[in-house]
Structures are given as C-alpha cells and as structure tokens.
Write a protein that binds this DNA or RNA. Structure first.
Length: 687
DNA sequence: AGATAAGTGCTTTTT
DNA sequence: GCACTTATCT
C-alpha cells in the first residue's frame, strides 16, 4: 500500500517550517546536529515532528540512505516515511526505516556469515522457538518427562529476558528468577545446546535479531565502523519502550556521529514486561553529554475535558516527569463513567452508544473499544455480531501463527533453508501416521540435504512422502536465492515465486488436508489465497518469509481489510491501540483485577505501569470518552467473587471531571427493588 | 500413533 | 469452569 494521495502531490517548494509547526515542534525539528531528547506528550504531534525532521534533514542535504528511523511498528514507519516523502521533492526510498527487529533482520541478512549463519536463515516465531527449545531438552540431558523441570515457555521467558535486559542467566537466577535457581546447571547447559541448535538449523529467534548484530559489532569492529559511518542521523520513536538491548543497538549505531534523536513519553511506557526500561529516557542525557531536551506539551488530539481526566489519573504515579499537557481543542463533553450491572449489559450499553454515535454522524472507524486483555472482549464480540455492527478485532492469535498459515509456509521454509528442523518436522507431521517420533527419524536422514531421494520411509506413507519431496524439490529449483547484498535495489523480476509455491502446496495437497481437518476449511483456504496475493509484493521468497515473521496482527489486518471498504469499529487491547486515535473511545472492564489486571498488581511499579496503560487508553480519545465497568461478573476470571470492585483507577479520579451515567448497584443497596434491566430498557433517558 | 479418560493449571500485554 | 496437558489403552 503506497501512500498514493501524498506521493502524487509531492510539493516542489521548500517547506515553511515556522508556519507549519508550532514553536515547540519547530525547535525539535530544526535542532542542530548532536544528541537530542524529545519528550513528547500524548497527541502532541510526535509523528509530525519526526516526519518533518526527516524532511528537514533531507532538505539540508543529508542523503536519505544515511538516515535511520526506528519505530515501534512497521505501520508507523510506513506512515512516517510516506508523509515525509510527500513533503519533499526527492525520493527517500534509500532511508532505512522500521522496527528494531526488522532493521536487525536486514543487518543480519547482510552479515549472516559473521554470525555463523547463511543469509537464507529462518526467523523462528514464538511457537517455533518454543518447539525448538523443547527439542533441546533431551540433548541437554533433561529427562523428557521430568515433572519438576520448567516448561519450554518458562525457560524461553528466562532466556528472552536475559537477552533483552542484557543480564546473564546467572544474575537473573540470583534475582528475579530465583525460583528457577535450583535448575541452574541444567539451564546453563540448555542455553548452550539451544544456541548451537539454532545455528545448526540456520535459524534465529526474535531476540537473536537484536543480539546477534551487537555480537557481530563486538567481534568485527570494521563492520561496526562502517555502520556508524553510514548512519549520520538516527531517529528513534517510542524511546520509553526500548529495552537494554535496543538501547544498546541505538548506542552502537549512533556511536560515531552521536546524532541521535530519541522521541518518547515516559507516561506511556507500557512494555516493561518485555524488558523495556523507561529509565532509558531519563538516563539519556547522561549517556549522551550535551543532549538538548525538547518538550512537546501542546495536545492537538483530545478535548480539555478528556485531557484533564487523563492528567488527573497520571498524577497518581510517583515515577514520572512532571509535565503540563495543554489542550488546544475547543471544549466538549465530559467523559462518561458508566456502571453496568454485568458484562453483558456493559456490551449492550456499548453497542447502543455506538448506534447513537452513528446517528450523530460518527463513522464506525472513528470508534474504538479498548480493554486490558483479549479475553475481556469475548462477550462484546458476540453482542456486536448479534447486532450486526461491523467491527474489526485484532485477536490474540497472531494471523500468521494460525495452524494453516504455518503449515503452508513450512514447505517454503524447508525449500529455502534445508536445515530448518522446525519447518521440516511440521511438514512431515501433516502426513497421516507421522508424529514427533517419525518426524525425528526422517529428519535424521533429510537434514541439510538438497535431495531427499535417499530418505527411507515406511511403505504406509511412501506415496505421500514422495509427493512432499517432489513439491519441495520443484520449489527449490524455482526459488531465487536471497539477495546477499540486501536489496538496495530489489530485483522485481523474481516476485511471484512465493505465490506460485503456495499455489502448488494448496492445489496439490493442502486444500484436501484442510477439508479433512477443519470445519471452517473455506475460511482457511481463503486466508491462504490472501497470503498468496500478499506474497507478491516481495522481491523473493526469503524476503517474504522474513517479513511474515515480523508482521503484527495490526499490519496483517490492515492488509486483509484493505479491500473491504466498509468502515469498522475497532476492538483492541490498549497495547495494540498505542499510537492510534479515535473520535470516540470506550474503555471497558475497569474493575479491580481486570484493569489493573490481577496478575500485574504485585508491586507498586506494576501498578504504575497499569496506570500508564490506563493513561494511554484515555488519551486515544478525541471527543468522546466512556469508562465502563460491570458491578457483577459471573464465571471464570472473577476469582470466586462475582461482585466486582470498581477499578482504583476510577476511584482515584475527581468525580466532578466525569459524567456519571448510572449509579452502581442501586438494587443491591436496597434503595429500590428495581430489576437490573430497568436502566437499559429506557437507557436513552440516561444518556 | 491416535483416541479416550483423567488431571492439571490458569486465565496479559508483543516483536 | 474451562482449555489444555498428560496417562492409559487399543
């Protein structure tokens, strides 16, 4: 999806920065070279500032290929580059922009051999990583079904945290992970086996995409030097959410010229569980002496009413940069606080309000419902479907981690990378009668081989195996090798490889498999057709697979729904809503235990992070903000007590800043014998 | 190896 | 109270 509108209306005159930016933004955008920290409050035009900064640098003769832009999502990168491109008359396609992981991927493709890999290496997603780590247990001397050893995902959690915070396993076992200390010897052993196994499979996990480039830099100062020389300017978005590893990468990239501009908001740091350390933003000036600090405190997004409430909430946090966000929008209505009797009424209330908003001319895609965890949205989802309100949900399961997508791409992966243990085993286990054990046997014979002619199989599945082998062999002959030189100029002539391969897999085998295994096989088949179309935009299969592994649901949804013109209400977790904005926002399930989430109430720090999350949720709203909570919740999740307490995040807010729509539990207080449903029957009254 | 039965544990956020 | 994991049997 190119940014058609803007790209075609590229302007030819120079930008009048003073006119187009406010003084705060202007100062940051036109900052002289040197380290700069931009503290940008919610809705303060952070994206605008970064976009204009790119344009400003290019207008001042910095070649685009010497600028590196690190963002939190691929979507944000695309958007910023598209906008920047529309501002200036030159192409900036040479600029490197993307997530840390995607930049790590590009670097690693180029210098794969220095890390002991082939440039065609596979990227293991979360499931693959867990799978491969599980396969390592035996080799590491851990009995296959030992009850008292942590599960692969727990071990992976430790390894990942170790990589992302750059702390040794030793250190973590002595501190936060002390409950695993008794397994110290085995864990260390496992770490070594796992590392070797990944290398042997010519595969990397998400963390390797960040840590291997750093290892290469350490071992090869000349590579570090050439990167540092290349990137004259480094721009980092969402700096508050960087972890030690990412901060380390930034420091490495910017180590020579020190022209790093870090943009972030400490109040919006919500990724500490992934090792993000929002102290990075505080310590930035110490790490970069001479840092100029800029503050963007004018909020263009929300009404003063919404902003006052958000500000009131965040002041309850001890650890923060005090800041004074000013709204410039004209006054609107106060945020509404709504107590529903139970979560199904909460859902009804939301759908009713959505209809009301639509009657007032608000488009569905200007509305979002936000919640703490995916599971909180189930009832609402059903209600929306029942009421036939079009909605889009970025579900918990990543689109590309669904079984059928992974099954089909396993063929491509093994075709591209003959050492990909995980893909091979996944593929072979699609054959009837083949489980983990048989897959292992086959792998022993097939590992690393270009041809599988010599692999001996039981007659039971000989024909199936033959067709798989033929399929993969023909794909290998068709597949183009990854471009070693990391496509500065992507060879367009090879695109379509992956699409053809997926087509063969589906036609010759997988369509049939789907009908036998899934009742929703049509849907899954359609997904694969979509995948085929999607794959055509990549220069080669290797590129396609790499991007696929780094793509989030948000980006997938974007691609999938690009064709459906129907505007949809967005249902999303607060995490996924980061950086987005809507005219009307509902924040639901504001109960003690659901928001803040029970699991995350262990320490004061965790509560503060939950509050930041609440702050992020509120500041997504432009005009209408609704805070909702049910007073009663049956079933799981209620931890035995079906009566829900209103979230402390609501209790601590000044009541006069809100419009209280329904009183909690009137019938429970004995005030009246009203039926729970009464409020809602005539609910238009109350709104 | 796969189906069925019993048992466990667990309800979060994402590249 | 449910989904996923593991044990046992065929």
């Amino acid at each position: 999806m190119k940014h058609r509108d803007q790209a075609h209306h590229r302007r030819t005159s120079r930008i009048d920065y003073e006119k187009e930016l406010n003084p705060e933004q202007h100062a940051a955008v036109t900052a002289p070279p040197g380290p700069a920290l931009v503290i940008a409050g919610a809705g303060s035009g952070k994206t605008r500032a970064l976009t204009y900064r790119v344009a400003y640098l290019v207008e001042n003769d910095v070649p685009p290929e010497r600028i590196l832009l690190l963002t939190f999502t691929n979507k944000a990168a695309k958007e910023m580059l598209g906008r920047a491109e529309s501002l200036i008359p030159v192409s900036i396609s040479g600029l490197w922009g993307g997530t840390f992981h995607s930049v790590g991927n590009r670097l690693l493709r180029r210098y794969a051999r220095e890390a002991g890999l082939q440039p065609d290496f596979t990227i293991l997603d979360a499931g693959d990583t867990k799978e491969l780590l599980g396969n390592c247990f035996q080799e590491a001397g851990i009995p296959p079904k030992s009850k008292d050893f942590p599960k692969p995902e727990v071990v992976q959690g430790l390894f990942s945290f170790s990589a992302n915070t750059r702390q040794t396993i030793e250190t973590l076992l002595a501190g936060q992970f002390s409950h695993l200390q008794q397994f110290s010897v085995n864990l260390h052993h496992l770490a070594a086996v796992f590392k070797a196994r990944k290398k042997r499979a010519n595969a990397v996990d998400y963390d390797d995409l960040l840590s291997l480039p750093l290892e290469i830099f350490n071992a090869h100062p000349e590579i570090l030097k050439s990167c540092q020389e290349r990137w004259l300017y480094v721009l980092v978005d969402e700096y508050q959410d960087t972890n030690a590893l990412q901060a380390g990468l930034v420091d490495a990239f910017a180590g020579l010229h020190k022209n790093v501009m870090a943009v972030g908001d400490d109040a919006q740091s919500i990724y500490s569980w992934r090792g993000a350390n929002f102290a990075n933003i505080f310590s930035f000036p110490e790490r970069y002496p001479g840092t100029q600090v800029f503050r963007l405190e004018t909020n263009y997004r929300s009404t003063p009413e919404i902003l006052s409430l958000a500000n009131a909430s965040i002041t309850n946090n001890e650890k923060q940069f005090p800041k004074k966000l000013r709204s410039v929008k004209r006054s609107g209505s106060r945020p509404k606080l709504v107590c529903a009797d139970d979560s199904s009424r909460q859902a009804q209330f939301i759908t009713e309000q959505i209809r009301e908003l639509q009657r007032d001319g608000v488009r569905p895609d200007q509305i979002a419902v936000l919640y703490r965890a995916h599971s909180h949205a189930l009832e609402l989802q059903m209600e929306m479907m029942r009421q036939e309100i079009p909605f889009q949900i970025t579900s918990g399961v990543q689109f590309f981690e669904q079984a059928h997508i992974k099954d089909a791409t396993a063929f491509l992966k093994i075709a591209i990378n003959p050492f990909d243990e995980v893909a091979f085993k996944r593929m072979t286990q699609l054959m009837p009668g083949v489980g983990p054990k048989a897959a292992e046997q086959l792998w022993k014979q097939a590992e690393g081989r270009e041809s599988w002619d010599a692999v001996a199989v039981k007659p039971k599945f000989a024909s199936e195996w033959q067709s798989f082998a033929d399929l993969v062999t023909s794909m290998r002959s068709r597949a183009t090798p990854a471009d070693d030189a990391v496509n500065e100029t992507a060879p367009e002539d090879f695109s379509g490889d992956a699409a053809e391969m997926i087509g063969s897999i589906v036609d010759e085998f997988y369509a049939n498999y789907l009908t036998l295994h899934y009742d929703n096989h049509e849907q899954r088949l359609e997904d694969l057709r979509q995948l085929q179309v999607f794959s055509k935009q990549f220069a080669n299969t290797s590129d396609f697979l790499g991007q696929l592994a780094l793509m989030t649901n948000m980006e997938a949804e974007q691609n999938r729904s690009a064709k459906q013109h129907q505007p949809r209400v967005r249902l999303s977790t607060v995490h996924q809503a980061k950086g987005l904005e809507w005219k009307a926002v509902f924040v639901m399930m504001l109960c003690e235990g659901t928001f803040p989430l029970g699991r995350c109430m262990g320490s004061a720090e965790q509560i503060e992070e939950e509050r930041r999350l609440f702050y992020v949720a509120m500041t997504r709203a432009e005009e209408n903000l609704y805070l909702l909570y049910p007073s009663f919740r049956a079933g799981r999740g209620s931890y035995g007590d079906p009566f829900q307490k209103k979230s402390r995040f609501i209790m601590e807010l000044p009541p006069d800043l809100m419009d209280v729509t329904a009183q909690p539990n009137q019938w429970e207080d004995g005030e009246s014998g009203e039926e729970p449903g009464k409020f809602f029957k005539g609910s238009r009254h109350w709104l």
